[in-house]
Amino acid sequence: MFTGIIEELGEIVAIENLPDAARYTVRGPVVTSDAVHGASIAVNGVCLTVVDETGAASLKGGEFTADVMAESLSRSSLGDLKPGDPVNLERPMVANGRFGGHIVQGHVDGTGTVLERTPGEHWELVRVSLPAGLARYVVEKGSITVDGISLTVSDITDGEQPDFTVSLIPATLAQTTLGVKQPGARVNLEVDVIAKYTEKLLGAAAGSAR
């Protein structure tokens, strides 16, 4: 489990395309400082597993390698990345750590597109498109994960083409990819899992009451 508090901006070092997957090599000195084979690291909000087939060689130099399944490539924006691109990195939350963001699984629900950036004196507003099927899980002042970043929804527009707005403080702009993502860029979205579980439980309860 993650919390959406980005630990460092990493970099895509190499991408190897496989028949039904891809192998990514990512540079991240902080997140690899205690990483081992089988460890989980979130890359732009996608939970990936460190693969180490050469006895720690893949973790030398602050780099790690992870295999990305076709499912993850189709449901996320990882397929848009190329060597040299920055990525948001986060290790899983430790049991005795501070819960700085919200419950993030690293299981991307879909992608949105950056629609607009509005600079302010001390922050910046970023408006992002929202897949219609996810709109019911997003509420004003609720939490959403954008490229692995735990953010608070400041505004939401419903309708056939819903979108939402987040307010980014200078630290978020400087320390995450949202500081450089321009209109037209795709971003990974993960909605609040509590909302999804609540919907399913209430639906099951309503069905059993009939």
Rank of each mutant, 00 (worst) to 15 (best):
N44L: 04
Y137H: 14
V180I: 14
A205R: 15
G38P: 09
G84I: 00
G207W: 15
D147F: 08
V153H: 05
T165R: 10
H37I: 00
R75A: 13
A206D: 13
V50F: 02
E160K: 07
V187I: 13
C47I: 01
A204W: 15
E63W: 06
M1Y: 11
D20Q: 14
I41Q: 00
I149E: 01
T157V: 15
T165V: 15
L73S: 09
G148S: 08
M1V: 10
V50S: 07
V146Y: 04
A174Q: 14
T49M: 08
G101Q: 01
E8W: 06
D158F: 14
V50P: 03
Q105C: 08
I6W: 02
I15R: 13
F2I: 01
A209N: 09
K196W: 00
D147V: 06
G203M: 15
A14E: 15
A205Y: 13
V139W: 02
I149A: 05
H37C: 10
V139A: 13
D158G: 10
L81M: 10
D109H: 08
V187H: 08
P83W: 13
G79K: 04
G100R: 06
F64I: 00
P162Q: 00
E199Q: 14
A135C: 09
A21T: 07
L89P: 01
S129V: 06
N17P: 00
A57W: 10
E53G: 10
A135M: 11
T145L: 11
G207P: 00
F99R: 09
A204D: 15
D34C: 13
I5M: 08
L59K: 09
L81N: 08
L201V: 04
E11I: 04
V68I: 14
T113Q: 15
K60G: 03
L130D: 04
V87P: 01
G159I: 09
D80L: 06
D85Y: 03
E116G: 10
P162E: 05
Q182H: 07
I5Q: 10
L125N: 07
G10P: 03
L173A: 02
A21N: 11
E71I: 00
V126K: 02
V50D: 04
G38R: 06
L89N: 04
G112W: 09
W123Y: 12
D52R: 11
T177H: 05
P83E: 11
A135W: 06
T25W: 04
S129N: 08
M1F: 07
W123M: 10
G84S: 07
E7D: 12
V94G: 15
V51M: 07
A21F: 10
F2H: 06
A185K: 12
V138L: 05
M69V: 11
G79E: 03
A135G: 09
V51A: 03
H122K: 15
L151E: 03
R210S: 12
T152R: 07
S74A: 15
T32S: 05
G142L: 06
M1C: 10
L178S: 02
T177S: 10
G61F: 02
H107C: 03
G28A: 10
G28C: 07
Q182F: 04
Q105A: 12
P183R: 12
N188R: 01
G184I: 03
P29C: 12
H122R: 15
M93T: 11
E16M: 08
D147T: 02
V104F: 05
A205L: 15
I103Q: 11
M1S: 14
T25S: 11
L125H: 11
T3G: 06
G112H: 02
V139Q: 04
S129T: 10
